[in-house]
Amino acid sequence: MKTIPHWINGQYYEGSPTGCFEVENPGTGDIEAELLQASDADLDHAVDVARRAQKEWARVPLAKRTAIMFRMRQLVLDHQDEMARMIVAEHGKNYSDAVGEIQ
Rank of each mutant, 00 (worst) to 15 (best):
M1N: 12
K2Y: 05
P5S: 07
H6L: 12
H6G: 11
W7F: 12
I8P: 02
G15P: 00
S16P: 00
S16K: 06
S16G: 01
P17H: 04
P17N: 09
G19E: 06
G19M: 00
E22C: 01
V23C: 09
V23T: 10
E24R: 01
N25Y: 06
T28Y: 11
A38V: 10
S39Y: 00
S39W: 01
S39K: 04
A41F: 12
A41W: 08
L43D: 14
V47G: 05
V49I: 12
R51Q: 08
R51H: 00
Q54T: 06
Q54D: 09
K55A: 14
K55I: 05
E56Q: 02
W57G: 12
W57Q: 10
W57K: 02
A58G: 11
P61S: 07
L62C: 06
L62I: 05
L62H: 01
K64G: 09
A67N: 07
M69H: 03
M72R: 02
R73W: 15
Q74Y: 03
L75C: 15
L77R: 11
D78N: 08
A84Q: 03
R85Q: 04
M86R: 10
M86I: 15
I87N: 06
I87Q: 07
V88C: 08
E90N: 01
N94E: 14
Y95P: 10
Y95F: 14
Y95I: 12
D97A: 13
D97H: 11
V99G: 08
I102G: 06
